[in-house]
């Protein structure tokens, strides 16, 4: 399921410092989202970001997907404007589902870093679990893995690409209105 564009062979070893900094960056990013600081989260993205979540179609290993002229199915396939639109919606104060406030918790782990052909960009793989608790006992959780391209800029680390893979086919939740 890995995205072909992201299958890049390591070009050089990653320094201990860089790997440590990337791990810290991803923990900080998760906390910014847990704390619903969406405008600040948007600042962690590059202007040219592509953020995707493909659907995990359940076909047989041997079988091709039934033919269609349309492109593969994504749950999310956003550039910066699309992500900003989602963030703006959260900030309207008009999303009734989030009032009383939703409690968010993200666990990011199994972080692996590789260099890419672009010197200041790194391929970063991670696993996640994300939990939302609302109201009395409206608890939802999702697990999966991510493939990111992180870019080192003068302003700090930025997310230039993210592909989010969920393990579930049928989404068992009232919505996926959250950032992964």
């Amino acid at each position: 399921m890995a995205n072909a564009e992201l299958k890049l062979a390591p070009t050089a070893p990653v320094s201990f410092e860089q790997e440590y900094a990337i791990g810290k960056f991803l923990s900080m990013e998760a906390r910014v989202l847990d704390e619903e600081r969406y405008p600040e989260w948007l600042e962690l993205l590059t202007e040219d970001i592509r953020y995707q979540m493909p659907v995990a179609i359940s076909t047989y290993r041997r079988a091709r997907q039934g033919s269609t002229t349309l492109k593969p199915l994504f749950i999310i396939d956003d550039g910066f404007p699309g992500l900003k639109q989602r963030a703006d919606r959260e900030a309207t104060g008009l999303v009734w589902l989030n009032d009383p406030a939703t409690r968010h918790l993200r666990i990011i782990t199994n972080i692996e870093v590789e260099t890419t052909d672009t010197p200041n960009e790194f391929l970063v793989r991670s696993k996640f679990m994300i939990f939302r608790g609302r109201r009395d006992k409206d608890i939802a959780s999702h697990a999966g893995w991510r493939e990111d391209i992180l870019r080192q800029t003068p302003q700090g680390w930025r997310i230039a690409r993210r592909v989010v893979h969920l393990i579930e086919r049928v989404v068992i939740d009232k919505n996926l209105n959250m950032f992964f």
């Binding site: 659907v55 179609i57 997907q65 039934g66 033919s67 269609t68 349309l70 199915l73 749950i75 086919r169 049928v170 989404v171 068992i172 939740d173 009232k174 919505n175």
Partner: peptide
């Protein structure tokens, strides 16, 4: 499109 979105509510 070949496959639908599926959500359980």
């Amino acid at each position: 499109v070949g496959a639908p979105y599926k959500t359980e509510i």
